[in-house]
Amino acid sequence: MPACKRKGERTVFFERKPHIVSAASIVGDMEGAGPLGALFDKILQDDTWGESSWEKAESKMFEAAARMALDKTGLSTGGLHCLLGGDLLNQLITANYAARELSVPFFGLYSACATLTEALLLAGMLIEGGFLGNAACVASSHFSAAERQFRYPLEMGVTAPPTAQRTVTGAGALVLRGDAPSPCDPFQSVCVAGGTIGRVVDMGITDMSNMGAAMAPAAADTLRAHLRDSGKSLMDYDAVITGDLGKFGTKMLIELCDSEGLHIEEKHMDCGNLIFAPGQGADCGGSGCGCAPVVLGAHLLQMLEDGIWNRILFLATGALMSPVSNLQGESIPGIAHAVILERVRA
């Protein structure tokens, strides 16, 4: 009987520790003008990228990000064992149509903005289990496509409440390998060491303009479960990074954790707060499936690679409502999947 890789209620640890060997990110012009602008692989000046609709443009971004990340590690689509990913649009059209073009084994996933960590955790398990030798994890979102699906047509004159976040236009891809990175891979020393599976948590928030507050309890729940299951403490992590809680969601997460004696404020960062600068018109921060992967791939992984951090807990958070459920009076359930990202070797 092999040793149990599952610890506690819902945390897993990997022995093989799949390496993240490359990443690619494509973003829109507003993200490109933000504080991380110089780090992204490609910045689009035209949000349709020459396509006839935003949906098609998002799919093109998804596909291009996947190809770019594969190129960086010298993998062809033929050599890729599995693509795992998703997006925000109904029936996962972004991911599905991109996968049609890529023509690779594909699992389409939906956890709203937590899709990236869901993909990373599953890819890690599949590689650990020996079912895959490598995998690509991709997630994307597009401001204009998300606006029309979840809110109003773009030219509609409406004012956003101060808690509203801006959906990031971006696609981010990460490539994982079960064996050691080859010398030319962009990342030599970053691995996925394990993670904690999220639970759907709903505190009854119904305001679709306040998704940070709806998702914060899920992040707190997963963080708490992770520490309890793993027996680790916050001291074991150089940073605890959430996906897209934004400014107000961050405030609520810190308050929730404080009330349980977990003081994360000094170690906490949020991708939604990193991607836009004040004065860019996204004062409550960014959100969307694409937010976490582009910030992780372009910025956070490099911090691990450079040895600035040795271990971080990365929790992407997703709000699982739809406009239909919202109109029917349902509240907004949240989910957060966590992955442990570690630096290995000296």
Binding site: P162, T163, M203, I205, A213, P217, M252, E255, L256
Partner: peptide
């Protein structure tokens, strides 16, 4: 929680 959100937002 909802009351705190309402108060702080």
């Amino acid at each position: 929680y909802r009351e705190r959100v309402k108060a702080l937002q």
